[in-house]
Design a protein around this nucleic acid. Structure first.
Lengths: 189, 189
DNA sequence: TCAGCTTGCCTAAAGCCTTTAGGCAACTGC
DNA sequence: GCAGTTGCCTAAAGGCTTTAGGCAAGCTGA
């Protein structure tokens, strides 16, 4: 009965890795137990239930993403910052599809409010300081950027753009050009 | 042993209704059997397996959405058409959240190619005829519009914009204004 | 109308996932 | 080294999926 050294953190991390390998929907308490070569019931001392596990993975992903975003934004402004932030999301989704899917998990309002999700909105706002937008247009723009980043990345990841010319990298740059142009020239209400 | 009259179509439709009520992830062969007051195994003559059921619901949702989109686009052009198409997606997602989630199901390439998904891309292209874009910018714009529609709707549905002013309806109109402005003034490469 | 066939829904059963309760052994601190 | 804590285990119940095989309801043709 050697002890493996399970902790909530190790389970969450292993769950995130598992998600990247087999997909977030396939992450299961059983599969995780198998990965640690441990009986299923043993995990329930560290994790409340399956939902709890998934929520923890989602929160981890949100943190990682926010950290990367903060890094990318440091010392940049304007289009440079826009591109950097956008690429953080896209690259993260490609590197860690399971984690990215986890980050999309619907959290209950209290959990969401305490999550790194709020940092994401703040950073998008910070980015917009490089453009000349005042409220409420700034909020509209925050939501637009969030929509484009999320929408593009999830369509691309889901194969929505596949097998068609021009390639998605090219579209991505042109979309960022277009967004930059739009933000510099936001139409008046 | 009265026969209930199960058919693949009725199961698919009931599955779609179930999805709207309890969420697409909660749609299960068992739950569907319960809804028809029939034993679980009985469904397996009409549906290959759980995945097959979900795929059929997804295809149904894509058809319904494409039909609504075609309707909305008829006789409209320019910003009028843009707004109409965008609202089809948003309204459908609000009316039928489960079906909308189903429409996001990743289909294998062959199924996807035979689905109504292709009609969606064609209609977005048709919409862009009202703007002056030539290839490859037209394709870039198709992808951008797809990303914004999908991204905005799924963030809004997921509660991503909730509890913050200004309200999401206002943002939605302003985002459509911005997209219209952008399409009329697409930046050169 | 009824014999015969098709086919719809059923029972049975096996496999996997979740979750809870209770137990023993391995660490921890004194 | 001993007591207490805690980690992982066994056991068990309940739900979902899927397959195999059976009976009877309802159509088909004479």
């Amino acid at each position: 009965m050697a002890r493996v050294g399970l902790t909530t953190e190790r389970l969450t991390l292993a769950g995130a890795e598992l998600a990247d390998e087999v997909g977030f929907d396939e992450v299961t308490v059983s599969a995780l137990a198998r990965r640690f070569d441990v009986k299923v019931a043993s995990l329930y001392s560290h994790v409340k239930n399956s939902q709890d596990l998934k929520t923890r993975i989602a929160l981890l992903a949100l943190e990682e993403l926010a950290d990367r975003a903060a890094d990318a934004l440091a010392g940049r402004a304007g289009k440079d910052a826009l591109t950097a932030l956008a690429n953080v999301y896209r690259d993260y989704a490609k590197e860690h599809p399971g984690r990215y899917a986890a980050a999309q998990l619907r959290l209950d309002p209290a959990t969401a409010a305490a999550s790194a999700g709020v940092r994401h909105a703040q950073m998008t706002r910070a980015l917009l300081r490089g453009y000349d937008l005042s409220e409420p247009d700034q909020t509209h723009a925050v939501r637009l950027l969030g929509s484009v980043f999320h929408g593009y990345v999830s369509l691309e990841l889901g194969g929505g753009f596949s097998h068609s010319a021009p390639d998605t990298q090219e579209t991505w740059s042109r979309v960022l050009d277009a967004l930059d142009a739009l933000l510099r020239n936001w139409p008046a209400a």
